[in-house]
Design a protein around this nucleic acid. Structure first.
Lengths: 360, 360
DNA sequence: TGTTAGCACTCAATAAAACTGAGTGCTAAC
DNA sequence: GTTAGCACTCAGTTTTATTGAGTGCTAACA
């Protein structure tokens, strides 16, 4: 049984670091020259043979140097986390201009991060931690127009205008308010599905087409809210071409396809949110650890942030397995500070909403 | 001097159509078999030689078949426009769910179009045809908070909340209102630049820091409006990998880079808006006709639509030069109808705006 | 027991050479 | 004006040769 001693660990680190830079398999001679342990390449070879046996490195083919395995990266990344904070990267250039719309801030963040790291980035729209419905109120605006006010926990108010094909009377509005509140209160947006909608229609009885119409409109409004949360912005997709191991059209194609499938991305980010993370909210997926098929040749680093006002956002950085974990994680930490400065201070936050104003 | 007769035109059409399908150079034998003109390959060769001399086709190398030149495509496309409407494509599946937010509709449109055509698509956010500022009103909400209401021609109202670092008194607000209205009224959003802002500060005199601060905030709000208009959504970037002539990582990289540079795209679409178009608002850029460097191996078809309420949007479809122009143009025509049905009927349209509602 | 020099061996990557076949242009006959 | 026939061209593919970085193993050394 071989054990991991100081020298082996040092060699492994040199292999990984060199590979991160060059992307080429690392040979024994390179190591014996680079590392400050004064041993010959032959000795290194023996050690490398051990490291291979332990599963931290492999040879892509017989007569090549070694490259790290997923397990090797994992050891390295875990170690990184334990060590003290590294040289803070220059995120200073990242002055987020004060914009009111959360959405635009997110887009800016994702773009800057992509430019800063040279990796592909993605960010999920602000999701409410507790997004249970607290109250729904329908009010008549006119004969064929209603406004639906939806209050979500965290005192977020959204309003939607509903246009009807036929007139509605006060009695029906009253009935609908009762029906909607008894059925939907306390449910989170995600829990509301077709079954529940169908159930409500059933309860209302089929006697009135107008009721069915309003319920559909409300369901649609709720769906729109969900969509809002599902929004994912990506940036720097072109960066994948900077890494030869991802740039061949087969892999690039699959990756970009995945980036285009916003739904799947959103799901991934949401899942990352709920997973165990370190103190900084950072989570690293190396190669096959990632749940997304197309990303198994990549590493993904995600970070979840508190955006204030009961909102959370998750950022993901996608790069080759040999991504510069140190830099990426430092960037994400700096970003956390920036975002906290902007949003965390309990200032009343403006959540962009619909309608209200700006008609003609 | 060779002239274009019926047979030449027929042969050219066969060459283009075949090449659209296969992407491979077309040889004389293929044509003599496929076309219903009963002549031998030798005759075809003579005709092709003429067509080449006329500049409609070329040989990629001596011993290859012919492929259309940009000029050849142009002739073909122009002809297409003149012919009666072709088999209408199945855009029926394109039931745009009734969403209130214009933005979401656009995203859906662009996604469906990409899925339908197998090309990459882009769409510019709704821009106002006449976006001149009609009126600006600042009102105090509190000691350190103002609301800026900006009315744009077409009766579009936008409001922004401005947080200040120091208190402001009524007198200053009055002064600012006067200053802003005299300087900005009648200007379109695009005309407002740093010079004008600086000019206003100058006019106000440097005596008061607070005035300068508010002007900056208003400028920022206007910039945000501009951003809104500059928004471009893309979809189906992965489709470029379906066409071998674009899929090699060099070209793909450049294309995707261009797609990521939303500003440049927005400019392109805006420019397309102002260019001469056919009756359907459709404009075709073949190869080098396109002003964008990276797209000179592609063709781009753009279409500008009236979205009602004084708004315009432009859609672009990006594909290989051998794109199925017939299908694309038919799709865009159908889309025009759909959009007119949704927005064109003069119904009061809801433009999403900021703030107002939904604070905590 | 750990370290080192030396050597034979492997194999991806690159370069050079040979082969193949679709397609052309030209000529001469119909 | 159309066609069959034939020599020629050249991208693309397969085949073969060459190179060189890197390894594993062995034997000698400290």
């Amino acid at each position: 049984m071989v054990t991991m001693d100081e020298r082996k660990w040092k060699i492994l680190r040199v292999i990984i670091k060199t590979y991160l830079e060059t992307g080429e398999p690392v040979g024994s001679r390179t190591i014996s020259k680079a590392a400050d342990l004064n041993v010959s390449s032959a000795t290194i070879r023996n050690e490398m043979s051990d490291l291979e046996e332990m599963g931290y490195i492999v040879q892509p083919h017989t007569s090549a140097g070694r490259i790290p395995t997923d397990r090797g990266y994992r050891l390295y990344v875990d170690q990184l986390v334990e060590e003290k904070t590294h040289s803070v990267m220059s995120m200073n250039s990242m002055i987020i201009s004060r914009t009111n719309r959360m959405e635009n801030v997110l887009k800016q963040v994702v773009r800057m991060l992509a430019a800063n790291t040279n990796y592909t980035t993605m960010i999920s729209g602000p999701a409410y931690k507790q997004n249970k419905i607290r109250f729904i109120q329908l009010s008549k605006l006119g004969d064929r127009q209603l406004v639906a006010v939806i209050v979500i926990e965290g005192n977020v108010v959204r309003n939607h205008i509903i246009d009807l094909t036929q007139p509605i009377d006060d009695e029906h509005v009253l009935k609908l308010n009762l029906l909607l509140n008894t059925n939907l209160n306390g449910l989170s947006l995600r829990e509301i599905n077709l079954d529940i909608i169908a159930g409500m229609k059933e309860e209302a009885g089929e006697h009135s087409a107008i009721i069915s119409e309003v319920i559909d409109a409300v369901a649609e409004a709720i769906r729109a809210e969900k969509d809002e949360e599902t929004q994912v912005y990506t940036s720097g997709a072109d960066n994948i071409f900077k890494y030869p191991e991802l740039a061949d059209s087969g892999k690039a194609s699959r990756l970009i396809q995945t980036l285009e499938a916003k739904d799947t991305l959103a799901e991934f980010l949401r899942q990352a949110e709920s997973e165990e993370r370190d103190a900084n909210g950072i989570q690293v997926y190396i190669g096959e650890e990632s749940p997304m098929e197309a990303m198994q040749d990549c590493s993904v680093v995600t970070a979840t942030y508190d955006l204030g006002g009961g909102m959370e956002g998750t950022i993901g950085i996608i790069g080759p397995k040999r991504m510069d974990y140190e830099k990426v994680m430092a960037n994400l930490k700096t970003l956390k500070t920036s975002l906290s400065d902007m949003f965390g201070t309990g200032e009343d936050r403006i959540v962009d909403s619909e309608d209200s104003g700006s008609e003609e």
